[in-house]
């Protein structure tokens, strides 16, 4: 039975509800959206299958954080689609009679591939040090400490390289 675990996360939610609302407010700057996300978080908590959670507060904070980022990404993708395709619908042959979903899939595929191309070329253009640190940490999943040990540099060196890489990729994605 994992009822026990579910209960604990639900209890943690009750205990930290105000704190979670504060995080969501700080993350979105919009009360309505924060409340909406808090509700979504509650639904997720209830669906959560796993066993007992060690640090309920940290776990819930992470879940909330991920919900915000998912939503951000969705919004950005929607804007991108609209910017690119809204007034060009007539150019897609038979767009009118094609199921909307299928067309969306093709568009998303293109946007995905474009994002991949942008990121890949930005990564390959990074300064050598930043590139190696970025690949080990973000692509191969090594922790900062492991990357530092692997390359024989300090942890703050890893952080500096990561900062260079993230800011460079940010610029590339915003272009």
């Amino acid at each position: 039975m994992n009822l026990d675990g579910e209960d604990r996360l639900e209890i943690a939610y009750g205990v930290h509800r105000a704190d979670l609302m504060r995080l969501l407010m700080a993350r979105t700057g919009d009360r309505t959206e924060a409340e909406d996300l808090l509700q979504e978080l509650w639904l997720k908590v209830q669906q959560q299958p796993g066993g007992p959670v060690e640090n309920g507060r940290a776990y819930l904070f992470r879940m909330a954080q991920n919900l915000v980022i998912d939503r951000l990404r969705e919004r950005r993708r929607r804007m991108e689609r609209e910017r690119r395709w809204s007034d060009e619908v007539t150019d897609f042959a038979r767009a009118g009679i094609e199921p909307a979903d299928r067309r969306k899939t093709a568009e998303d595929l293109i946007l995905d591939r474009e994002e991949i191309a942008t990121l890949t070329s930005a990564i390959t253009n990074l300064p050598e040090g930043a590139r190696r640190v970025f690949e080990l940490h973000k692509l191969q999943g090594l922790s900062h400490g492991e990357v530092a040990a692997h390359l024989g540099i300090s942890k703050s060196g890893v952080e500096k390289h990561m900062a260079v890489a993230m800011k460079y990729l940010r610029r590339a994605l915003m272009d």
């Binding site: 700080a26 993350r27 979105t28 700057g29 980022i69 998912d70 951000l72 990404r73 950005r76 995905d112 994002e115 991949i116 191309a117 990121l119 890949t120 990564i123 390959t124 690949e135 973000k138 692509l139 191969q140 993230m166 990729l169 940010r170 994605l173 915003m174």
Partner: peptide, 29 residues
């Protein structure tokens, strides 16, 4: 601060989403 964090979080999320494709493209290049 929120806007700055959002822009960095979006980069992270995009890389995480496409990690496999990016890794193989870099390897192929």
């Amino acid at each position: 601060h929120r806007a700055a964090f959002d822009s960095i979080a979006l980069v992270s999320a995009a890389v995480d989403d496409h990690r496999a494709e990016i890794t193989s493209l870099i390897a192929a290049q």
